[in-house]
């Protein structure tokens, strides 16, 4: 078996779009099941009263990360054919800082906002409109900030390369950090819910 299937030409573009819908359905389903269609639930993350965002995000990352590692270890998946987004250090740091303020203010992120909207949250629709406006603003500013947008390029660099560790060791460290994080999250939730 050779994965990624699309990269090995097992199917064409039309089938790829069908898979896009199927994968999207799974994505939207679990986002809604986790409670991410509610801005109030999402925002509790930043007040320590409900750390579901952290738990779901890191469980998902750790699951997919280990899946990639083991499938590649057993020779099923060619990791070099999985597209890693290149790093642009300063723009990604600044973008993250702007995004974080938007998260607290708006209560949703782009994916969860779609799930909120489709389940009837009016603030989700308004948030979606705001995002269209923000992207339009970025597009109009692009001729001015395009150079900065492409500054500090570091290529397709990974944490394993930065810390000079093997892929497996890096994966293990992140799993251990996540487990410690989950333990702390449960403790924090109990404490902050009791003082509320």
């Amino acid at each position: 078996m050779n994965a990624p299937f699309y990269q090995f030409g097992l199917f064409g573009n039309d089938t790829a779009l069908l898979f896009a819908v199927i994968i999207g359905i799974g994505f939207g389903f679990f986002l809604e099941q986790a409670g991410f269609g509610s801005s109030v639930k999402l925002a509790q993350q930043f007040y320590f009263t409900d750390l579901t965002v952290f738990k779901v995000m890191f469980t998902a990352i750790v699951t997919a990360m280990q899946g990639l590692f083991w499938l590649s270890w057993f020779g099923v998946l060619d990791l070099s054919l999985v597209h890693v987004l290149p790093t642009f250090l300063v723009p990604q740091l600044v973008g993250g800082l702007v995004f974080g303020v938007g998260f607290v203010l708006g209560g949703y992120c782009p994916g969860t906002c779609c799930v909120a909207s489709v389940t009837g949250k009016m603030d989700g629709w308004i948030h979606l409109l705001g995002m269209f406006a923000g992207i339009f603003l970025f597009g109009e500013l692009f001729p001015l900030i395009g150079d900065w947008y492409s500054s500090t390029p570091k290529g397709e660099i990974t944490l394993s390369q930065v810390f000079n560790l093997s892929h497996g060791t890096m994966v293990l460290l992140i799993v251990l950090a996540a487990l410690a994080g989950f333990y702390s999250a449960e403790k924090l939730e109990t404490r902050f819910r009791s003082i509320k």
């Binding site: 993250g96 708006g106 948030h127 923000g134 339009f136």
Partner: peptide, 8 residues
């Protein structure tokens, strides 16, 4: 928040 998130 949506505007900031779109930009970010």
């Amino acid at each position: 928040g949506g505007i900031l998130m779109g930009l970010g």
